[in-house]
């Protein structure tokens, strides 16, 4: 497959995986926790590197899950001790991110781990790091990583669909039914962390946040059904990646940045023109009802 194709495919998978997981983030009003995790994952990667001295996939995933859970845990602790949620998120992620940056600058200077890369990703170089098996080249590592994670995400959502739905919609009811609400919360946040780190290597923190939040928000404006919201969100995420890639090629600018901008453009379109929840539709409906009466 061509060089371009791998980049587009990887981007699309990132969009789909983040779109699926992000749907529940938005519904649980935890969008900014995604922002937090996407920053603190840096600490996980540095930690994993300091422990294992490699930047191999499995170590990074483990490091990411640990910091993701740690971030969730700290935020939860602050939150349940009466700190406003938004402030709790702000304090935790800036602190952990700072520790990550400090560790990088003290111990991991010469590694391929500069903070620039963490924020903006390096999707352009994805095709150069390939997996070989029995002498065959199977394609870029990043692609396989996100592909595997996407499958895990899909399985997770399918299996836990009704539990995720009820804990997102009415946690008190879920608790009264005897569901382990807290355990599910942490399990879900682990999935967010895995997805973040798998996307991260190719597209960087900012695009991960964009992909986790913006396509689900767009889908939210387009449908009133949860299942459709998940599907739309995945599709919008993938489409943003593809469109973003071509725009980036055309203007010769950052691919990740362009993909993020595209999610924004699609959101704006939905915000204005969505059939039922768009601004224009709402204005029209109001005008119609006024003229009718």
């Amino acid at each position: 497959m061509s060089y371009d194709m791998w980049i587009i495919l990887t981007g699309a998978l990132v969009g789909a995986a983040c779109g699926i997981i992000g749907t529940f983030l938005v519904l649980r009003k935890m969008a900014m926790i995604a922002d937090a995790i996407s920053h603190t994952v840096l600490l996980g990667i540095v930690g994993a590197f300091l422990v294992s001295q490699t930047l191999e996939g499995p170590f990074m995933l483990i490091g990411a899950v640990i910091t993701g859970l740690l971030t969730t845990f700290f935020i939860q602790v602050l939150d349940s001790s009466g700190v406003q949620t938004d402030a709790a998120i702000g304090v935790v992620f800036t602190a952990l991110f700072s520790v990550g940056v400090i560790l990088v600058s003290l111990f991991a200077r010469n590694v391929h781990l500069d903070v620039d890369h963490v924020l903006m990703g390096d999707i352009t170089f994805i095709p150069f790091h390939t997996i070989e098996w029995n002498g065959m080249t199977l394609g870029p590592k990043a692609f396989w990583l996100i592909a595997v994670v996407l499958v895990i995400d899909i399985v997770f959502i399918t299996v836990m669909y009704k539990e995720l739905k009820i804990t997102s919609f009415d946690p008190a009811m879920a608790f009264a039914l005897g569901l382990p609400v807290t355990a599910l919360h942490y399990l879900f946040m682990s999935m967010v962390s895995i997805t973040t780190v798998a996307s991260f290597d190719s597209v960087g923190a900012i695009l991960v946040v964009a992909m986790l939040i913006v396509p689900p928000s767009t889908a939210y404006l387009l449908t009133d059904r949860l299942l459709f919201m998940i599907l739309y969100s995945a599709a919008i995420g993938a489409a943003s990646a593809v469109i973003g890639y071509y725009i980036a090629q055309w203007l010769n600018v950052s691919i990740a940045g362009s993909m993020a901008s595209t999610t924004g453009i699609l959101f704006l379109l939905a915000f204005l023109f969505a059939p039922q929840h768009g601004i224009i539709a709402k204005r029209l409906a109001r005008r119609l009802s006024v003229t009718e009466s």
């Binding site: 922002d35 903006m120 900012i206 695009l207 946040v209 964009a210 939040i213 913006v214 980036a248 203007l251 600018v253 950052s254 990740a256 940045g257 362009s258 993909m259 993020a260 901008s261 999610t263 924004g264 959101f267």
Partner: peptide, 9 residues
Amino acid sequence: SVFFGFGIV
């Protein structure tokens, strides 16, 4: 994320 992404662009 969108503003920052656009900034990177």
